[in-house]
Amino acid sequence: MQEPGQHNIALFSCSTDEFGHDPFVYEHWLVLIVSGRSEMFSDERIVSYPQGTLGLIRKNQLIKTTKKADGEKPFKSISICIDQQTLKKFSAEYGVKAEGIYTGEPFVLLENDVFMRSYFNSIMPYFAQPEKLTPVLAQIKTTEAIVLLLRNAALKNFLFDFSEPHKIDLEAYMNRYFSYNVPVTQFAKLTGRSISSFKRDFAKIFNTTPEKWLQKRRLEMAYFLIAQKNRKPSEVYLEVGFENLSHFSRIFKKEFGVNASRL
């Protein structure tokens, strides 16, 4: 996912498997898979979402995905960024407010009903003529998406809970999400801490810095996948949280004394 641009509406397409490089979701996103499928990773399992899947992804989440083509059909999705500024303006104008803190799932599957189908069909022509999608029109289409979603009363707290993440169990969270390639500042925010309190709490728990701990945990996971699961270094370096294969190979050898490709 990318931070919202001028229009808040994006068409993504790829013809080969592509791993999600930025797993931090900054805003709510309404996503329809037009073709192909997406695989979403967690520490426990992999869930595959086929063509036609419509879902709502909550802000401030770590989500790791792979986009896969379906034969000759490329992976293609339409994404609508429902940003906090738009939601706060909508809340002020129409008096829609959350009834409490949202405690549900960070990814909600939605029924692709006739109204939602018509909504996404109305967007498709703009991808052939993007200059027609002015900022005003894009804002109108984003507001339309909010109104359609609010037909489901259970989504009101999802959309209009503007509270920041509360302080949570740091040790459990880091052991679950260490393989997600995001800055330490994002880990601090997601665990409900300032960067200074995050580093202070981290040192008390792990007796080292976040940067050193993250690198070591990611290398240990990579070693396990390569040595025990017969995975290739080129298959695992992104999965465990590294951006560059050559950098990964270099520090892997420094840590374990052997080239990853020789295991």
Rank of each mutant, 00 (worst) to 15 (best):
I63D: 11
C14E: 08
R193K: 11
K253V: 02
S77T: 01
G5C: 06
S122I: 03
S77A: 15
S197W: 03
F206V: 01
I146C: 09
P233A: 04
C14T: 05
S197K: 05
K167D: 13
P210K: 04
H7K: 08
T86A: 15
P135S: 03
V114C: 14
F41M: 12
T209R: 05
S197Q: 07
K212W: 00
E18R: 04
K141Q: 15
P135H: 02
L137E: 08
N207F: 05
F158K: 07
R262Q: 15
G241N: 00
E255C: 07
E239M: 07
L32G: 00
D201S: 09
L225S: 04
Q61D: 12
Y180K: 07
H21M: 12
V182T: 13
F75V: 00
T143H: 09
L155A: 11
E171V: 12
V114K: 05
T142A: 08
F120W: 06
Y237T: 02
L133E: 01
Y102M: 10
V136G: 14
K232V: 02
F256D: 00
T86L: 07
L170T: 05
T65C: 07
L149G: 14
L109Q: 13
N8L: 11
M174T: 08
K59W: 09
I226H: 01
D161K: 03
Q139F: 08
R45T: 14
C14R: 01
Y94M: 11
V182W: 03
K229W: 06
W213K: 12
L133K: 03
H28W: 09
E171R: 04
L170A: 05
E239A: 02
P74H: 04
H166V: 13
S118G: 14
V136Q: 12
D83S: 13
T209A: 06
N259A: 15
Q215Y: 03
R58V: 04
S13Y: 00
L137G: 04
L150E: 08
K253Y: 10
D43N: 13
E27R: 10
L245V: 00
A92E: 11
S196N: 13
F19H: 15
P50C: 05
F19V: 12
P135W: 02
T208L: 03
V147H: 12
S122V: 02
M116R: 12
I63F: 05
T143C: 12
A138W: 06
D70P: 12
K76I: 06
